[in-house]
Write a protein that binds this DNA or RNA. Structure first.
Lengths: 236, 236
DNA sequence: ATTTTTGTTAATGTAAGGTTAAAAGCTATA
DNA sequence: TATAGCTTTTAACCTTACATTAACAAAAAT
């Protein structure tokens, strides 16, 4: 077998620590690009295609969170790990809002980092692959253009979708006729899973159902405790 | 929300360390059964269904390797992690021969353990799904889709099943025409075996019988004191 | 005959989901 | 910086879905 080497963008301003970490990761079969600050990090990010970003939070010019936000604007998928100088709850929260997949307090055990990297990359690999690039869907009489965020019924009028509406419907469409687990939507779209985000999602389901009412063959079913299922009934 | 809690069997004779570790794992959303020695460990293993076993190697009466061997005889799948007092190559090898999935030298970083657990459980999950988890069954004129939790009769309308209904019917289907022991359903589905859960199960049997009435060739028979048997009569 | 086990229906309590509306966040633009 | 126009979250209230327990009848075992 032999998966191809995974590519990591490491943004770390401390030259000693940065080089050591880079070498360590390379020894563990990752291809590592090391940027010395946020600016450089973003440049390198745009130029290349990474499987994971490891960002130091404390950096001159451009801190890790700001960089992460910029990266997220370009790419909503790539996993991000933050390195923080010490446990700072505020920061951690802020990090999660940007869509961090994990964070680590320096100094950290390098083996822990390695395990996290493995877990994260593997997780992403199993979700994403084919999915991540599909933006147009036929759903019964509807056409969803997920890039431009609109829904048309029988070529007629276009309904504009909000970002969340759009992502949720897209996720449902990707799993048409199959279970779309609640948890999946929450982690992929809301990047958080708690009572309120879950209720928020229910609100969006209600909105989507309203849009989809035009075609009575299309419906969103609930699977209690599991998630939702977008079905398109074939028969009359 | 969400995946169900994973169950860990922890066999560790040092009471202090054992309790601390148990608490730590429980804080991280695992359900932990703690056994204080190999004997007890094996008893608990037989009674329940675990997703992972963590075995201390050094234990009085029955060491971890011996226990692992016994466990393997009952179950070739369940992942096993060994805790060894210190790096001992010999032992490690011996462990792998028994089919250990990993080992850790005490003292170890608890976060590392956590990551290993996650990785191992996930890996198993992804192996297993396809094979051992069968989700579609034909039962006479019925089709059971156990993933989406519905039952159709002759391609007609879909009846939604509750989680318990679904799991119970699936278990019966897995043993079609054969005895499905009461105790099996109780430990696998209810994860508990007492008067009330047993009565609860009877209620579910009644519910399933109601659904299955549509096809008079399909029935659930009781084997007094033993369990139930899902039969599909072939002749007219 | 009488004690256990099972069959079945109904009642109860709790959790999850459906829906709408109000509040809070954003962003752009005046 | 105020404001208009959106998006998203939170709140509230209601309905449905589930699992358990109770209650009583029937069947099987002793």
């Amino acid at each position: 077998m032999n998966e191809q080497q995974k590519r990591i963008l490491l943004v770390e301003d401390d030259p000693n620590f940065g080089t050591v970490l880079k070498d360590y990761l390379m020894m563990n079969d990752y291809e590592v690009t090391h940027a010395k600050n946020g600016m450089e990090g973003f440049e390198k990010f745009k130029k290349d295609d990474f499987d994971l970003c490891i960002l130091d939070v404390m950096m001159p010019y451009k801190d890790g969170f700001t960089l992460a936000k910029e990266i997220r604007e370009k790419n909503t998928e790539v996993p991000i790990i933050f390195l923080t100088a010490k446990a700072m709850k505020e920061d951690v929260l802020k990090g999660y809002k940007v869509g961090a997949d994990d964070y680590l307090n320096k100094p950290f055990d390098s083996e822990v980092l390695l395990m996290k990297i493995k877990a994260i990359i593997q997780r992403k690999a199993s979700d994403t692959v084919a999915d991540s690039k599909q933006f147009e869907f036929k759903i019964g009489g509807f056409d969803l253009n997920s890039k431009l965020r609109f829904l048309t019924y029988n070529g007629g009028e276009q309904v504009k979708l909000s970002p969340k509406e759009n992502e949720l419907l897209r996720l449902l469409a990707l799993h048409e006729n199959d279970l779309m687990p609640r948890e999946l939507a929450l982690t992929k779209i809301w990047r958080d899973d708690n009572y309120f985000t879950s209720r928020s999602m229910d609100v969006y389901i209600a909105k989507l159902r309203k849009y989809l009412k035009l075609d009575e063959k299309v419906e969103i079913l609930n699977i209690h405790g599991e998630g939702f299922r977008l079905v398109v009934n074939t028969e009359a």
